[in-house]
Nucleic acid binder design. Structure first.
Lengths: 210, 210
DNA sequence: TTAACTACCTGACATTTGTCACTTTCTCCA
DNA sequence: TGGAGAAAGTGACAAATGTCAGGTAGTTAA
């Protein structure tokens, strides 16, 4: 449908990781329209996606973050560890500074939001293939603004509290006293400027810290 | 890519409603592959989608539920009210019995989940166009199992509590005494078999009751 | 090798949350 | 027309939550 750009010498080989089958297939269809891009592998969860990248050695790997078994960020980190040559584009619903930061730490070349226009995806693939970075502009500025103030324990406890577990259960899960659990929650609540554990969990989630 | 089925006499005209641009474009690309299906309109929020259906009078309208301005369910209900001839397919991430029930009440002909295989979408469009219903099998059985046990007040209160507001604030918002608010929450907690307000809100959300 | 800093951990106390028994208001229908 | 039933509304009591003041390791920098 689109003309092959002059710069393209050969087909850009792409693997896609995305847990929603409908979206996975649709994205593949979208990219296959382009003459210079070919989808050579797919994964419907983190592990499948990782394996597909290792098998196919694509030029570009496009992945969602929230997937079963292994998140897209974990896959990216693993690929970095293994010195994979595939450039990684994170494609997600969530405009969270914490996610972007972790993506960049994991060596990703791109961070795009699913509510961008569909036409921009192919262009992003080409840019990233050329060695450029493609970051959603809105997030790029915000990214370095705020660091996660939570300690590991606070994060753990807050995650469980956000699921509706009460202090006693959390304490049992983590082998702590109930008082300690309440203390961590109190810390987290105060650090995040929340009024209670529920709001604290909500805020942390929004920022991508959980 | 796929051959035109023998039953197709003319092109099936489709409008898509979906707020994530990337997914919207990708779904359109997926359907345009089929010889007997043509995407004649798009909406990136409920109002746009409704307008597109009214303007284009398509055979089939595929829509997400959670969209700005107007949910897909509200659009479906409005189309029913206006006696639109477009058949409606709900395409969503959420396998919630409450959503399915509301979709059917709003006269939808299909309810599909985004994690189905992409190939099934075109087939669903054809079936629905022929006047058949297409419901995700997993949900179909579960759908009528459980009715929403919450009263209006309980729902209101639970929604606010789920956002982390405390009883006093909720009481002020709704002009109730704090005791009353706590009573509604207690009722909701017991009806849903939860241990506290957070878990209750989570359960209700999962079922599509909030 | 201290001092300062940080994360981790705890129990005692005050506040908020959850439960229960009860009253009021409204609708439905025999 | 006079219950029966369901939802809305309330306050008193018990249980869970949030705060505070403090104590123990481990690390870093003078």
């Amino acid at each position: 449908m689109n003309p092959t750009p002059k710069t393209a010498r050969r087909t850009i080989r792409v693997v896609i990781g995305e847990d929603q089958g409908m979206v996975l297939g649709a994205l593949a269809a979208l990219l296959e329209i382009e003459n210079d891009i070919s989808v050579v592998g797919r994964g419907r969860n983190g592990k499948e996606a990782l394996q597909a990248v290792l098998d196919q050695k694509p030029d570009v790997f496009i992945t969602d973050i929230e997937m079963p078994h292994m998140s897209g960020l974990e896959v990216a980190a693993e690929l970095k560890r293994r010195r994979s040559s595939a450039r990684v584009i994170i494609l997600t619903t969530f405009a969270r500074a914490g996610y972007l930061r972790r993506a960049l730490d994991a060596g990703a070349s791109g961070y795009l939001l699913k509510d961008m226009r569909a036409e921009q995806l192919a262009e992003a693939v080409r840019r990233v293939h050329q060695g450029l970075r493609v970051i959603d502009p809105e997030l790029a500025t915000e990214a370095w603004s705020e660091a996660d103030p939570l300690t590991d324990r606070e994060r753990q406890v807050l995650r469980l509290a956000g699921d509706g577990k009460q202090s006693g259960e959390i304490a049992a899960d983590l082998n702590l006293s109930e008082g300690t659990v309440r203390n961590y929650l109190s810390e987290a609540i105060s650090k995040l400027g929340a009024a209670n554990r529920i709001e604290a969990a909500r805020i942390a989630r929004t920022k991508g810290w959980l």
